[in-house]
Design a protein around this nucleic acid. Structure first.
Ligand code: MN
Ligand code: MN
Ligand code: ZN
Ligand code: ZN
Lengths: 138, 138
DNA sequence: AAGCAAATGAGAAGAGTTCTCATTCTTATT
DNA sequence: AATAAGAATGAGAACTCTTCTCATTTGCTT
């Protein structure tokens, strides 16, 4: 296990943190709720408390290792930070998540913030729709 | 009290619904949580149950009288529907909410949905920042 | 005015998340 | 390698926001 990433983030290399980080890095699914992470770890035989999963994900977020999203549906969704900021388009039927980057939108947002007198700190953009697959069914 | 708006929406003109609708229409604050509405009604001496406020706001939403937003912070926020779709920019310090419309962004979103093969149903865009007022303090 | 379906409201319940605190683990120091 | 001190963990309680349940009340039609 590679504890250097945790150390670099200023976090002690504890077993739960290592397990969660490893899981996030190796998972084929990019966007996961705390519960998702918790269950997946349980199923692979790892003993980690749910409270710890929540705590650690929040710490990872603060450390910039992970990004939190608020998709519709109430629960926070996390994904490994991988450099480039991006936004999301989600299927309201099957839950599929796609990512995109649009410089025009990014620029426009900055412009709007400036016009309104705000110093922009963040933004969130979600497009909802029915994905190609789900359109076929029916 | 004007019950025609409710009738038109296919809703019985009950007292709680009339009170809530009247309050939303006359409130100077445009964006309010269910709790906000509930408390405001209590303070003005109106007896309405919290469960009813939640229920009625959801019905108003389904009827298109009201729009629901998911601002950061967990609770749903409602506002009277007034024709034009718009997005929001919010102050992370004082909670101020401003509205804007940007056709370029709207178009881009449609384009992205099409490119990704989605039939777009909805979208949500929030810009977060520090408003002019709050920038002065400090 | 009567009858009936629909709506209400109080409180229980549910979902997601955070908190509490006794126990365990990590890391620095011998 | 053993020790000490502080940090992290995990079980469950607690919390927030929202929905559900169901006995009672209300609105609307006749
Ligand atoms: Mn993503
Ligand atoms: Mn608005
Ligand atoms: Zn789909
Ligand atoms: Zn402000």
């Amino acid at each position: 296990m590679d504890s250097s990433e945790l150390k670099r983030a200023g976090l002690k290399a504890t077993l739960p943190r290592l397990k969660i980080l490893e899981f996030l890095e190796n998972s084929k699914v990019r966007h996961m709720s705390a519960e998702d992470v918790y269950k997946a770890l349980l199923e692979s035989g790892e003993e980690v408390g749910l409270a710890t999963v929540y705590r650690v994900l929040t710490q990872f977020e603060a450390a910039g290792l992970v990004v939190r999203h608020h998709f519709e549906g109430g629960q926070s969704v996390f994904e490994m930070e991988h450099g480039e900021h991006h936004d999301h388009i989600l299927c309201v039927r099957c839950g599929k998540v796609d990512e995109f980057v649009d410089e025009t939108i990014e620029e426009r947002q900055k412009k709007i913030a400036k016009e309104k007198g705000y110093s922009m700190t963040d933004h969130s953009l979600y497009i909802y729709g029915v994905c190609g697959e789900c359109q076929k069914e029916e």
